[in-house]
Design a binder for these strands. Structure first.
Lengths: 191, 191
DNA sequence: ATGGTTCTTGACCATGACGTCAAGTAACGC
DNA sequence: GCGTTACTTGACGTCATGGTCAAGAACCAT
């Protein structure tokens, strides 16, 4: 890690920081597709600056994704990993991810792979997916979860929930959870 | 029903018909939110004519919804009504509606109530909903379908599937059906 | 404090949608 | 045929987004 930054001028440095903070706010509230103008306004700069500094939405996202989303997802993974019962663990994972998707539009966008072509995002997704596959396998080993389920099915379930969450727009959390419990039940063994 | 049409000029008559046909095609293919320009192009008229004749998207939709969607939904209802087993009937209804949503973006838009303020559409939805409620009740009476389900739950399930179908964009029909079977299983009684 | 360099700005272009209307075109009745 | 009236057109105005860039502002080393 050489300090590959050729030394930013003081004002530029300040702006970069401000933009990152603004982006965190805006993205958290409205997802990764928020107009960059909005981020610019929140940061008190003009949108040109964002393009100049980050090269566009893609770059800006890469610059904040760690603080914005990665923590949360990793948090869920470690938290859930501590659960002993494999079935419980698997179901908990899905519930937590689903709620995350509902509560954090930005995390949802990541899980939906809404930003094709960002390495860090792809990696994050990939990781979450592998973990989910692990939980699934262990849960299936108990015989209590349908053994015709695949990792892809799990990803599909997450994708679908994400699409729904996106359309909910912070209403009906009640119905959202009620409905995913139905799906969860449908994943258990026994006709 | 007096012929309240003050007699359209021959060319106008022709255009109205052409627009209706074009709208059927376009709406069927891309949903009720297709650009009116596209309908106009398909009909070989200018978009001004549509506005003049139908008053905008709303009016155009009202003018074609019967041919476009109502038939299909009513068809499903009668077809499914013929099934004897209440559980089978209820589940079949959901499956059929879900597939309809997937296959016909226009029908989907109607079921999603995407066009607030159109009387015929609202009526159609309302009807479908009442029917679904009936099927649900009868299915629950057998004890094989969870009795904590309500009509609203059913509507929610349809709404959610509609949102998903809309995002699928004619791919992954396989996954779509696979996934709704999980949900369906989750509606059955027995933990 | 001044010159040279780095940074920022905001006006600008583009796209794609909605909806309107004056002016032009075409059918109809006579 | 021809005037009248109904009908259609397509350019125009608007809004919301993404993205660019020449020109001006800010900084920093000297």
């Amino acid at each position: 890690m050489t300090s590959d930054t050729p030394r930013l001028r003081a004002d530029a440095q300040r702006n970069v920081e401000g933009i990152r903070l603004a982006a965190l706010d805006v993205f958290r509230a409205h997802g990764l597709n928020s107009p960059l103008d909005e981020v610019a306004r929140a940061a008190g700069v003009s949108k040109g600056t964002i393009y100049h500094r980050f090269g566009g939405r893609q770059g800006l996202i890469d610059a904040v994704v760690e603080d914005l989303v990665a923590e949360r997802i990793k948090g869920i993974i470690t938290e859930v990993s501590a659960i002993d019962d494999p079935v419980e663990r698997f179901e908990s994972y899905l519930r937590q991810i689903w709620l995350l998707q509902y509560d954090e539009p930005a995390a949802n966008d990541v899980l939906l792979r809404a930003l094709p072509g960002s390495a860090p995002l792809a990696a994050l997704c990939e990781h979450a997916n592998r973990v989910a596959g692990g939980f699934l396998g262990e849960a299936q080993a108990t015989g209590k979860i349908r053994d015709d389920l695949t990792s892809e099915d799990v990803y599909l379930l997450i994708w679908e929930r994400g699409i729904i969450a996106r359309a909910c727009d912070q209403q009906h959390r009640e119905g959202f959870t009620r409905s995913f419990e139905h799906t969860l039940r449908g994943l258990r063994s026994g006709s």
